[in-house]
C-alpha cells in the first residue's frame, strides 16, 4: 500500500492508503476524498483531477511530459502553477509513498 495525503483548499489534510499500481486519482476517489472529479475515468482526457504536487515531492513526481496529452489538457485548468499535474497521470509507485498533493478549490 502507498500512503498519500491530500490537502484541501481550506487546509484539511486527509491521509489515505492505495494499492501500488493505481493512480493518485484513484487514491482520492476510492477513499471519498472530495475535490477531484475525474470525469473521463482516468484516461487523461479531461483535466478534472488537477492537483498541485507539494514542492518537497516535485523532484520525484516531475512535470508533465512536454507536448504530451497531459500538458495539452492542463493548460486549460484554472489556477495552474509549475507544480500542476493531473492525478490520473501520477502512478502510485513505492518511491511516492508518503506523497503530499494539494487540491484546487474547484475543478474546471
Amino acid at each position: 500500500m502507498i500512503n498519500v495525503t491530500f490537502v484541501s483548499a481550506d487546509g484539511t489534510r486527509r491521509s489515505v492508503e492505495i494499492d501500488e499500481g493505481l493512480s493518485a486519482r484513484e487514491a482520492a476517489l476510492f477513499n471519498s476524498v472530495p475535490g477531484i472529479d475525474g470525469d473521463c475515468g482516468g484516461v487523461c482526457a479531461c483535466a478534472t483531477c488537477h492537483v498541485h504536487v507539494d514542492q518537497a515531492w516535485m523532484d520525484r513526481v516531475g512535470p508533465p511530459e512536454e507536448g504530451g496529452m497531459e500538458s495539452d489538457l492542463i493548460q486549460f485548468a484554472e489556477g495552474t502553477t509549475e507544480t500542476s499535474r493531473l492525478a490520473c497521470q501520477i502512478p502510485m509507485v513505492p518511491e511516492l509513498d508518503g506523497l503530499v498533493l494539494h487540491l484546487p478549490e474547484l475543478q474546471h
Partner: peptide, 10 residues
C-alpha cells in the same frame, strides 16, 4: 486560454 477564465469556477 484567453476566454476560458470567464467560465472558470472562480
Amino acid at each position: 486560454k484567453a476566454v476560458s477564465p470567464v467560465v472558470a469556477p472562480s
